[in-house]
């Protein structure tokens, strides 16, 4: 029996090793390194001072924190839109579509999931630019006389982002709604509820884990997205990740870039944490299930 327990011990440690290496070397240490770098200030070549100077200069520069605020509000807007647009679609797939079309619709939803952000943004560019499909069709139909540029506006960025992330909203919603017993809805109607009450008191509470999970992933993907705002919003889209890229690659100011990185991470973590607390969920009941 003793050797039996030793074997279990040994296998536990062998299995713990790759997990620990991964988490410590590729996740924890890099984040700490970034935090450390953000607290460092270069005052002369190879002379550094440690403190909050980078954060102070961030706070003193309205362009920087305006970009963060802008990214934040637009991400929240995109998340809300994705939920409002995606919920009826998820409900249809899970509850209204027939058994056979359900699988097909779900597959159709998944197909764009496997297409790179880059190709999706490229497709939108081809549709929306001044010489693009929509503009050409409008001219051809005689509705407008000259070409219309749809790109490089905030509305386009929002549409593009909703498009990019909405699948991550729909998939967890479908899997939660799928488990809901139809009898619950029937009961709601039988007890005298109208459509709206049934939606608010029965369907939405039931779908809450899916909603939270979808919102978290959607928000995080939006706030951290880079391609869609740059390609659809142009160079002046003032997206926070673009600022990070700018500091790191263009200006080679790693200390400032790391500061921005820490701020973005802190910000998204706080929003995710608030979302989990407000809904009483945890990461393993939401994100892990989707």
């Amino acid at each position: 029996m003793r050797s039996q327990r030793d074997i279990r011990r040994l296998s536990l440690f062998l299995l713990l090793a790759p997990f620990a290496l991964w988490i410590v070397l590729l996740v924890a240490l890099p984040q700490l390194g970034m935090l450390f770098l953000s607290l460092r200030e270069k005052i002369a070549p190879r002379v550094y001072e440690y403190g909050f100077a980078n954060y102070v200069s961030f706070a003193g520069e309205p362009i920087y924190w305006n970009t963060l605020l802008r990214t934040a509000t637009m991400s929240l807007l995109v998340t809300a839109l994705a939920l409002v647009i995606g919920f009826p679609v998820a409900y249809y797939i899970a509850k209204i579509a027939g058994r056979r079309s359900r699988g097909a619709l779900f597959l159709l939803i998944l197909i764009p999931l496997w297409v790179s952000d880059l190709i999706r943004a490229f497709g939108w560019i081809l549709l929306l630019r001044e010489t693009g499909v929509v503009s050409s069709l409008l001219q051809w139909s005689g509705l407008v006389s000259g070409g219309i540029e749809f790109l490089y506006t905030d509305a386009t960025v929002v549409v593009g982002l909703v498009y990019t992330v909405i699948l991550f909203m729909i998939v967890p919603l479908v899997s939660t709604l799928d488990g809901m017993d139809e009898a619950m809805i029937e009961a709601g109607y039988n007890l005298g509820g109208n459509g709206f009450t049934v939606l608010r008191r029965i369907i939405i509470p039931y779908a809450m884990p899916g909603i939270v999970s979808g919102c978290i992933v959607t928000f995080m993907l939006t706030a951290g997205s880079y391609l869609t705002p740059i390609l659809l919003g142009g160079k002046n889209s003032s997206w926070f990740t673009a600022q990070i890229y700018d500091q790191f690659i263009t200006r080679y100011n790693w200390e400032a870039g790391a500061t921005f990185g820490v701020l973005l991470l802190a910000f998204t973590s706080v929003v995710v944490w608030i979302g989990l607390k407000l809904s009483g969920q945890s990461l393993s009941t939401t994100v892990a299930r989707s």
């Binding site: 997990f19 240490l29 390194g33 990740t241 790391a258 990185g261 991470l265 973590s269 393993s284």
Partner: peptide, 24 residues
């Protein structure tokens, strides 16, 4: 707790994973 830690990389923006590893 460690199971939650395992899920964490999914809620860290990809840009951050990239720059953090680059810095380290």
């Amino acid at each position: 707790a460690l199971y939650v830690v395992m899920i964490l990389p999914l809620v860290i923006p990809g840009v951050i994973l990239g720059i953090a590893l680059l810095v380290l």
